[in-house]
Design a protein around this nucleic acid. Structure first.
Lengths: 134, 134
DNA sequence: ATTGCAGTTTACGTTAACGTAAGTTATATT
DNA sequence: AATATAACTTACGTTAACGTAAACTGCAAT
């Protein structure tokens, strides 16, 4: 069963993305989200949900809220003039470089984890052999 | 020309890794580094340098200093007993999972950047065509 | 009518990761 | 001997990203 409506309450989003409502309101304070209102209550659109998803994903790879904000901004209207578009393309290039570096870093770490694990398991083996000889 | 000695001053390391000496001392406050001393002066070994490298790399992919500290700990003596070794292997597994998730996140972001870039460039093209028609 | 959620605002508190400044010491150079 | 340079310690300051508490609102069910 998939959702049929395209609006969400704050607690629905909070539950879905594993954050608190305070966190979501905080993102709004920083202008990362700007939900509609029904009276006092915040009503989140599908677009808001996607932005939140991007923020949460960004956090997993160590982006600051500012950086996520800039990424969000890229997917938005602002494509008014050439100057703006060119700066966006530049920013995309820089982002790609940073992400590529992260890929390399993660590969290195995974390699090192493999080595460490192999070492641990060998160590465990020899400890168990020694224990059996008693 | 490669370094032949295997000790470093704090400012050498700071320069090499692009951090301040304050930062390096901070890592020592958190017990991530424990350099020798010559009187007051800190003398860093090759092992210290490697740890620092790991910390800096960890920061690039969004690890906290605590997490980097735990990773460092894994590469260290502690292999005394079976219990400890097993917990280390578990921790390695968890780390690998987290890193794998990051790999997926980064791939997704790179894809989205590609789409955004394509969109921008198309937009730029049509803007330029329009400008030429004047 | 009141009890109970789910939501709201306002505002101060907290943690991580350093920055920054002030004053001290040791070594090397002019 | 005086000065510069690189190190050091102590301690308070700062920013990001929320946490937490208090007090209020609106609607729904008992």
């Amino acid at each position: 069963m998939v959702k049929e409506t395209s609006t969400y309450s704050i607690s629905e989003l909070a539950k879905e993305f594993g954050v608190t409502t305070r966190t979501i309101r905080h993102y709004e304070e920083l202008q990362l989200l700007l939900p509609e209102r029904q009276g006092q209550k915040r009503i989140y659109s599908l677009a808001d949900r996607i932005k939140l998803k991007l923020i949460v994903r960004g956090k997993r790879i160590g982006l600051s809220l500012q950086e996520s904000g800039e990424l969000i901004h890229m997917y938005e209207p602002g494509r008014s003039n050439v100057d703006q578009l060119e700066r966006t393309v530049e920013y995309i290039g820089a982002s790609r470089q940073k992400l590529s570096q992260q890929l390399r870093d993660i590969s290195t770490m995974l390699d090192e984890l493999d080595k460490a694990e192999t070492g641990c398991k060998a160590e465990l083996e020899s400890l168990r052999k020694a224990a059996n000889k008693e």
